[in-house]
């Protein structure tokens, strides 16, 4: 009982506000689903050569279901980071800090997907990590200390919520399609 209370207190102290968590979920959905849909459209002409429209829709269902899984996982990891790290690093201003974190590491991931060979050196990986941290830190500091930037950033994040109303249901429907195919 004592342990449960302790855990509950810890979560209350460490977890960001629900509204902020939802903003981050929306940003994650926007980035991850948009990238997935972009890849789908990029591959679409090649798919048309060997798959029927029905088969392409099945592949799309797999991609969107996976995007849903990735979105939830990314958001959950950021929430856990917020709970574990000192409040000043992530919890305060969680919505924009976590969102910039996703944007920075997403950008570096895309860059690495294109340039990384099958024998990456440690120097290369450290450089990419440095790039990601810089890409994260600069906008975070600007948002933290420049009011105009802060207002614009929070306004944009607020508007990204619309994507979660589109992408998340799409992900859920796709997940049901995949589950149906795997179970029956």
């Amino acid at each position: 009982m004592f342990m449960l209370k302790k855990l509950s207190d810890f979560l209350k102290r460490g977890l960001p506000a629900k509204s902020e968590m939802f903003l981050v979920l929306s940003t994650a959905a926007f980035l991850i689903f948009t990238w997935s849909v972009r890849t789908l459209f990029f591959n679409f002409p090649a798919f048309l050569l060997s798959y029927t429209i029905g088969e392409i829709l099945v592949i799309a269902a797999y991609m969107l279901a996976f995007a849903l899984f990735e979105t939830l996982l990314a958001t959950l990891l950021l929430i856990i980071m917020s709970a574990l790290l000192p409040g000043g690093i992530f919890k305060e201003g969680f919505s924009y800090k976590a969102s910039f974190f996703l944007i920075a590491f997403g950008a570096v991931s895309i860059h690495m997907q294109n340039v990384m060979t099958n024998q990456p050196t440690t120097d290369f990986l450290l450089l990419e990590l440095g790039r990601a941290l810089t890409l994260w830190l600069v906008p975070v500091l600007l948002t933290r200390y420049v009011n105009v930037v802060r207002k614009i950033v929070l306004d944009i994040l607020d508007r990204l919520i619309i994507f979660s109303y589109i992408y998340l249901p799409l992900g859920i429907v796709s997940l049901l399609v995949v589950a149906f195919r795997l179970l029956w």
Binding site: L31, W35, S36, T39, F42, A67, I110, Q113, N114
Partner: peptide, 10 residues
């Protein structure tokens, strides 16, 4: 090498 549909997990 080349882009994957998954942004992070790939």
């Amino acid at each position: 090498k080349g882009t994957s549909g998954s942004l992070f997990l790939s």
